[in-house]
Amino acid sequence: MKKREKLTAPLIAVLLGLLVGMIIVIASGKSPVLLISAIIKSFCGFDILNPGPINPRYFGEFIVFSMPLILTGLAVGFAYRTGLFNIGGEGQVMVGALAATVVGILVPLPPVLHAIVCLIAGGAAGALWAFLPGFLKVKRNISEVVTAIMMNYAALYFCNYILKALPGSTQTRTVDLPASALIKSDFLKQITNNSRLHWGILVVFLAVIVYHIIIEKTTFGYSLRATGFNAEGARYAGMKVERNVVYAMMISGVMAGLAGAIMVLGTFGYGRVLNTAENYGFDGIAVALVGGCNAIGIFFAGLLFGLLKVAQPLMQSMQIPKDIATIISSTIIMLVAMQNGIIYIMNRLPKKKENAEKGSEQA
């Protein structure tokens, strides 16, 4: 697939997904302008229906919603590029959040250092939770899909048990983490009109850069990709296939664990006892797919899905069902999965046009 086609096919899928959403809105008796208005306002805070000052709070919240999606997308994409399918991102997000919470509450440290240690703990917890599926795959040839998805449920109940046992916890949340452990920012809050935007955005940027460097620029990344492409060929070439599989899963788990950590340390400031999964890990699969498992592509795909999520309350306020955003997301995913067909049509149209022109000249 050519580089131009890799960029064009997902873009066409996004535009067609939005078109399908507008058609459904029209069929429901509403104006598609309301849908467009909700999306634009969620993105930048400008209301095209009632023009006035831009409210940067909307932009800040849009980024907050997007950050964990980008990280879980990177987690899924990294595993996929190395021949693995990390469907356990949901559990890795939970244990990452748990580790950050436990260290934040129980380990007193100076400011800045405390937050860094909490982030490291979150990433390490995600790596450890991803270790078992990778280990069982290389030692017992058990599919990482089976073990990872089972561990999602184990993570939910394990994390809830530990969180409730922490000092001062209720049935729904822990005590507030100390300020030294948080990555909240008064500066970012001020420039975005009291949004929850925090320094986790730096973690996201760093993760995107590290992902790109490891996968595209290092011999280690090449060996990981070679293992995923042809394990026996990689083994014949002297690469340590079993080690690479475990390392790839653990690196993937680090990124998912960081997603949980930044939500605790930046967005909420306390640990949450969840009744059910929040689907960040599963949404990461869609983000990775739409982004083509490329670091930059995943970054923009995460922003797209974050925008559709944060736009749902505005849609409801405009009497547009919030499920429209889900329909748009699902359509985009389906079309990206069919991108080979889109590329085929793209390549056929110029040929048809050329044949038609030749026919008219001969006539």
Results as ranks from 00 to 15, higher is better:
112 V>N: 13
260 G>W: 03
110 P>C: 06
359 G>A: 14
11 L>I: 08
295 A>M: 10
165 A>G: 12
74 L>K: 07
12 I>V: 10
292 G>Y: 06
271 G>R: 04
347 N>W: 06
283 D>N: 15
320 I>S: 14
91 G>H: 05
153 Y>W: 11
286 A>I: 09
353 K>N: 12
2 K>F: 11
294 N>A: 15
38 A>L: 08
41 K>I: 04
260 G>P: 07
90 E>L: 11
54 I>G: 09
343 I>E: 10
36 I>A: 13
213 I>M: 04
333 I>Q: 07
150 M>P: 14
181 A>N: 04
203 V>E: 15
159 C>H: 01
339 Q>D: 15
23 I>C: 12
106 L>R: 01
255 M>W: 10
341 G>A: 14
45 G>K: 03
174 T>L: 07
83 G>A: 09
109 L>T: 01
229 F>G: 02
60 G>E: 04
330 S>F: 00
101 T>L: 09
21 G>F: 00
276 T>E: 04
356 A>L: 13
254 V>M: 13
56 P>H: 09
43 F>E: 03
186 D>A: 03
349 L>N: 07
110 P>H: 03
131 F>I: 03
232 E>H: 06
61 E>Y: 10
160 N>V: 00
334 M>C: 14
229 F>Y: 06
353 K>C: 06
11 L>Q: 06
180 S>W: 00
250 M>K: 12
133 P>D: 07
196 R>I: 01
176 D>T: 00
81 R>Q: 12
344 Y>C: 15
102 V>Q: 10
309 K>Q: 11
93 V>G: 08
31 S>T: 11
299 F>M: 13
80 Y>P: 08
70 I>D: 04
359 G>R: 15
223 S>C: 00
120 I>A: 14
289 L>T: 15
194 N>Q: 13
306 G>R: 01
179 A>W: 07
341 G>F: 04
335 L>Q: 09
353 K>D: 02
312 Q>K: 10
111 P>Y: 05
320 I>E: 13
4 R>A: 15
280 Y>I: 03
271 G>C: 11
172 T>R: 05
20 V>D: 02
316 Q>W: 02
241 V>G: 05
242 E>K: 15
160 N>K: 09
214 I>S: 05
323 D>F: 11
142 I>E: 10
356 A>R: 13
98 L>S: 02
240 K>R: 14
135 F>D: 02
60 G>W: 06
93 V>M: 05
206 L>Q: 02
296 I>V: 15
55 N>F: 01
356 A>P: 11
286 A>G: 06
129 W>P: 14
103 V>Q: 06
120 I>W: 05
44 C>P: 00
242 E>A: 13
295 A>H: 13
92 Q>N: 07
38 A>S: 15
251 I>E: 08
249 M>V: 00
270 Y>Q: 10
34 L>F: 10
234 A>F: 06
362 Q>E: 12
108 P>C: 04
16 L>M: 05
68 P>V: 00
